[in-house]
C-alpha cells in the first residue's frame, strides 16, 4: 500500500479510537451524574437506609465510609512511612530488592483475596467479627503498597545534597530525615495520601466480608468509642457506600434500589473527583509554600 495512504488511514483509526475512549468516559460520568444527582437530596444524605421499603437514605453508609477511611489511614500511614523511609534512605542491595518485590506482590493481589484473608484471620479466627476494625485492616493491606511506594518516591525526589548538608553538620541521618527531608517531601506525600484515599473510598471487594454488609443504627450523640451503640465504636459492623451499592444490586429488597444506587454512585464519584482535584491543588500549593520566597 502507498505509505501516504497508509499513514492517513492509521491516523484516522487512531483518532477514531481516541474519540471512542473520550465518549465512553463522558457517557460514564454523565450517566452517573444525570441519573444520580436528582436523588441526592438532604433527606437522602441524612436518613438511615431501609431494608424493605422505599425512601431510605445513605446517612450511615456515608459516615461508615469516611470513618473507615480515617481509621485505615491512621493504621496504614505510620507503617507506610517507616517502610518508605527504609526503602528510600536505609535500604540497599539485595534485601531492599527483595522487600520491593514483596510489596509488588502485595499490590498485585486481588482485593477479594486480601478481604478473604482478613475475614479468615480477624473475623473468624480472632473472633473480632464483621467490624470497622476488620475492614480497616483489610484496607490497610490494600493501601500499604500504594502509600509506601508514594512515600519512597517523595523522599527520593528530595536532592541528595540536602542529606549531605544535614549529615555534614553532625546531625544523625535520622534527624536529617525527620527535620530536613520529610518537610520537603510533604507535598508529594499529601498528594499520594489523597489519591490513595480515593481508591480506599471506592473499594468494596475487600470489605464485604470484613466490615460486613449491614449498617446497624448507631447513636451519633454517643462519643464514647467503647459503647456498643456509639457511632465511633470500631467493633461494630459497618456497610460502606460502595458495599451498599453492590448489596442493593445483588440481593437488595428495597423497591427503589436503582435510584439509591444511582444517587450513591453519584456521591462516590463526586467525593473521588473532589479528592483528585484537591490532591492536585493542595500538592501544588504546599510545594510552592515550602519552596517559595514568601513568608
Amino acid at each position: 500500500m502507498n505509505p501516504r495512504i497508509a499513514n492517513k488511514i492509521a491516523h484516522g483509526v487512531i483518532y477514531t479510537l481516541v474519540a471512542i475512549v473520550i465518549i465512553i468516559l463522558i457517557f460514564l460520568i454523565s450517566y452517573i451524574l444525570v441519573n444520580g444527582l436528582p436523588y441526592v437530596t438532604p433527606h437522602f444524605l441524612s436518613a438511615p437506609s431501609q431494608v424493605m421499603n422505599a425512601g431510605g437514605g445513605i446517612r450511615d453508609q456515608l459516615f461508615n465510609s469516611i470513618y473507615l477511611l480515617i481509621l485505615t489511614l491512621i493504621i496504614s500511614f505510620p507503617i507506610a512511612l517507616g517502610a518508605g523511609i527504609y526503602l528510600s534512605e536505609y535500604g540497599s542491595g539485595k534485601i531492599s530488592g527483595l522487600i520491593r518485590t514483596t510489596i509488588e506482590v502485595l499490590s498485585s493481589l486481588p482485593s477479594i483475596i486480601v478481604g478473604l484473608f482478613v475475614y479468615l484471620l480477624f473475623v473468624i479466627r480472632f473472633h473480632i467479627g464483621f467490624s470497622i476494625l476488620s475492614g480497616a485492616v483489610a484496607l490497610t493491606f490494600f493501601n500499604l503498597p500504594i502509600l509506601t511506594r508514594n512515600i519512597e518516591d517523595s523522599f527520593q525526589s528530595v536532592p541528595n545534597l540536602q542529606r549531605e548538608a544535614g549529615i555534614s553538620l553532625g546531625l544523625s541521618h535520622w534527624k536529617t530525615i525527620t527535620g530536613v527531608i520529610f518537610p520537603e517531601a510533604i507535598p508529594g506525600i499529601i498528594t499520594g495520601i489523597i489519591l490513595s484515599s480515593g481508591r480506599v473510598f471506592g473499594e468494596a471487594a475487600a470489605l464485604i466480608y470484613t466490615s460486613g454488609q449491614s449498617a446497624p443504627v448507631v447513636n451519633y450523640a454517643d462519643w464514647n468509642p467503647f459503647d456498643a451503640a456509639s457511632f465511633l465504636n470500631p467493633m461494630r459492623p459497618a456497610e460502606t457506600l460502595a458495599v451498599h451499592i453492590w448489596k442493593l444490586n445483588t440481593e437488595g429488597l428495597v423497591p427503589d434500589a436503582k435510584q439509591i444506587s444511582s444517587g450513591s454512585s453519584a456521591i462516590l464519584i463526586l467525593v473521588i473527583l473532589i479528592f483528585n482535584i484537591s490532591a492536585h491543588f493542595l500538592g501544588n500549593y504546599l510545594y510552592r509554600h515550602i519552596t517559595s520566597s514568601s513568608k
Binding site: 460514564l28 451499592i245 444511582s262 454512585s265 464519584i269 473521588i272
Partner: peptide, 10 residues
Amino acid sequence: GIPSVVYGFI
C-alpha cells in the same frame, strides 16, 4: 478513579 462497584452498576 471510578470505583469498581460503579462500573458494575453501570
